[in-house]
Write a protein that binds this DNA or RNA. Structure first.
Lengths: 246, 246
DNA sequence: ACGCACTCTCAGAACATTCATAGCCTTCTT
DNA sequence: AAGAAGGCTATGAATGTTCTGAGAGTGCGT
């Protein structure tokens, strides 16, 4: 055994070690496919539903730890699905998906109940992070053997406070820089390609070029690797990797 | 372990550690739904009733630590419900809900008896705070492993006296400023979004824009962060956070 | 009824962020 | 060693977000 051995992946599980279960509800297959892939990659067990009534039925049988729920559904409105779940005594936390312009009054009050929402188009990192937050804070899911702080070497990232520190020194990051660093830190000592980063950290409808990743890596380096030995490494032709300085 | 470790959440429980139980009585489902969501998120166990007689029955069976009771009910008047409970020898503290214009003298005497009331429309922070106060002061609930004083760094907020001090110096806040600060201080070192703040601190029927939050943050800064290092931090694109000055 | 304190909108200023472009640098291949 | 490919970063324009002053409206207390 040596120091480069892969560490156990950061993986949220239930109290008994069985995988987290998530129900994804949206009528666009392209979106449910995308989310299903991304969430399976987290090691979670996923079921999907395309409308409100099958969502309610599946929630009953599948007993998910969280639900991703589009507001706009062909039959029953997403908010009504929530109401029915609650009327059933089901406290599962819900992450709503909503178009940016269709926001406001209808969503009002949601976050006060411990639920949350993201606006389309979203980045997968954002959805996963919010889900992890919801599940971690949910009074139902017993485990939460997880801290909101990612640590790689002397670099720390706190998902609750959004604080990032290198050797204790506070570092200010923009939203995109923060998401990129979080993604890298959740995959330490592993090369991630520019397309992986783009697929994961940028909104799914991002139309720009992948060179934007290079730019943000460059920003991060200036802030993270400014002093001390570098932790952000380029793997030519393959991608980028973060690991503790040696 | 270092000084940035997340502190245990502030959570009121009964003496044996079991969750607080609250009965919510209102005939409008939208309101009971909202309160149920918000109070569950406090980690409490909630039951609801839509009229006076089922409220009395549920109070007997469920043995709640507090009751939220609308004055206006389809069958029996809320105040009469209180009378019947007391006649039964049930001393559970009651938080009445009443329309602002229907504020009659009958309500006036309530607070003398250890009960309390809020006028509709209310903010969730207000209801939760009043409930916490009632439960904490109630002779029934044994625990109260909780102080009415929130402390973050050298900033103190007393929920009983409504006094706020920074480094010992008394600071005058308006009602809204106080509620906003209380909400932030109950979530120290955690980024809270503008929608979360709006959902929680502003009345549930508030129709305005979330920029009002920015304005009140600005007011708070002038009073709280006037001198000394700042405790109120903007996390661009995410929300606001309070933490001890470094 | 009056004045005062408070809440909230508006609008513009100030500021931060995102991203494309382009030229330079590094590394690899032959 | 030269060329090609890939990567880095300075610059700046466009965009998006936050802050704040002025003031209108509201409601409360006297």
């Amino acid at each position: 055994m040596n120091e480069t051995t892969a560490q156990a992946p950061i993986r949220l599980t239930r109290a008994d070690g069985s995988p987290i279960r998530v129900l994804v509800v949206d009528d666009e297959t392209s979106l449910t496919d995308l989310l299903q892939m991304a969430l399976r990659y987290e090691g979670w067990e996923i079921k999907t539903a395309a409308d409100g009534s099958s969502a309610i039925a599946t929630a009953r049988d599948f007993r998910p730890d969280a639900i991703v729920l589009d507001i706009m559904l062909p039959d029953i409105d997403g908010l009504q699905v929530l109401q029915r779940l609650r009327a059933d005594g089901n406290d599962v936390p819900v992450l709503f998906l909503t178009a940016k312009d269709a926001l406001d009054d209808r969503i009002a009050g949601l976050t006060a109940g411990g639920d949350d929402y993201v606006t389309k188009p979203f980045s997968l990192e954002e959805v996963v992070a919010r889900l992890r937050g919801l599940i971690r804070r949910s009074t139902l899911t017993v485990d939460a053997n997880e801290s909101p702080v990612l640590v790689v070497g002397d670099l720390e990232l706190d998902e609750d406070s959004h604080e990032v520190r290198r050797a204790g020194r506070l570092i200010e990051l923009t939203a995109t820089e923060f998401e990129l660093l979080r993604y890298l830190m959740r995959n330490p000592r592993r090369v991630v390609s520019k397309s992986q980063i783009l697929d994961r950290v940028w909104d799914y409808d991002f139309g720009g070029k992948s060179s934007v990743v290079e730019i943000y890596i460059s920003y991060l380096r200036k802030k993270i690797d400014a002093e001390g030995s570098p932790m952000l490494h380029t793997v030519r032709g393959a991608g980028y990797m973060i690991k503790p300085a040696e």
